[in-house]
Amino acid sequence: MYAPRLRLDPDSTHTLTPVWHIELAFRVVAGGRLIYPRLRIPYYDPRLGAPRLAVADWGQLRAHDPRPLRILEAVGLVGALVLLAALARVCVGAIGVWLCRRRWQRIAQRGDSRALLRAWRHDLARGAPEAQTLRGWARSLRCGSQPLLHQELEALIRAEEQRRYAPVAPSAQVSPGPGKVKLADEVG
């Protein structure tokens, strides 16, 4: 127990019956049910003209050690940070998928075969085994876990395949020169 602190109430300094505030501090050394100390304060009662004894009894209280609560708070804080990090990772992944799909939709809507071929050549240069053909590469494209190939992109790939791989139309075929036909007749 610490020394008591006596203080005169500032509102009662100019009255005939001054009021004193007495502060008693004590330190709890063990958790559980504690009983406040009973105070016996002797004083002089002017009405009776005799000394009296004032008894202050405040009952009991329950004290607990706050350290386990601090540990629980720390565990809760760490758990909240882990959840926040997981949520941030999911959000970043979702935004990445959205940006990827948006990029490819823009390429498909614009019919930008240059951008399509640039991306294909980039994967081909990296040595991606699925990039051997344009269609095989397009089937392997993914944004997140979802396949990327959709109708507009499929149409762009089909047009590019026809442009690159389709046989030349008969009207556009070049006739062989006269020297080549003569050589073919001599060989054949």
Rank of each mutant, 00 (worst) to 15 (best):
M1N: 00
Y2V: 01
A3S: 04
L6G: 05
L8P: 05
D9P: 08
P10W: 00
P10T: 04
P10H: 00
T17D: 03
P18R: 08
W20P: 01
H21W: 09
E23A: 01
L24D: 00
R27I: 06
A30N: 13
G31V: 03
G32L: 01
L34D: 00
P37S: 07
P37A: 04
Y43M: 15
Y44N: 02
D45K: 03
P46E: 10
P46D: 11
G49Q: 13
G49V: 07
A50V: 03
A54N: 00
A63H: 00
D65V: 01
P66W: 03
P66F: 04
R67A: 12
L69G: 14
L69S: 11
R70S: 06
R70F: 05
I71W: 02
E73D: 10
A74K: 11
V75S: 07
V75Q: 13
G76M: 10
G76K: 11
A80I: 11
V82Y: 00
A85N: 05
L87N: 03
L87E: 02
R89L: 12
R89Y: 06
A94Q: 13
A94M: 13
C100V: 05
C100K: 01
R101Q: 14
R102Y: 14
R103M: 04
Q105M: 14
R106K: 07
I107S: 06
Q109G: 12
R110F: 04
G111M: 11
G111A: 12
A115E: 12
L116R: 03
L117T: 05
L117G: 02
A119I: 09
W120H: 07
W120S: 05
R121D: 01
L124F: 13
A125D: 11
A125S: 07
A125K: 03
A128C: 12
P129W: 02
E130M: 04
A131C: 09
A138V: 04
S140E: 05
L141D: 12
C143H: 06
C143S: 06
S145G: 14
S145H: 06
L148M: 07
Q151M: 08
A155Y: 07
R158V: 15
R163C: 02
Q173M: 09
V174Q: 14
S175H: 09
S175C: 04
S175E: 13
S175K: 02
P176I: 10
G177E: 15
G177M: 08
G179I: 00
G179C: 03
G179K: 04
K180Q: 15
K182R: 15
D185T: 06
D185N: 10
V187W: 14
V187S: 03
G188R: 02
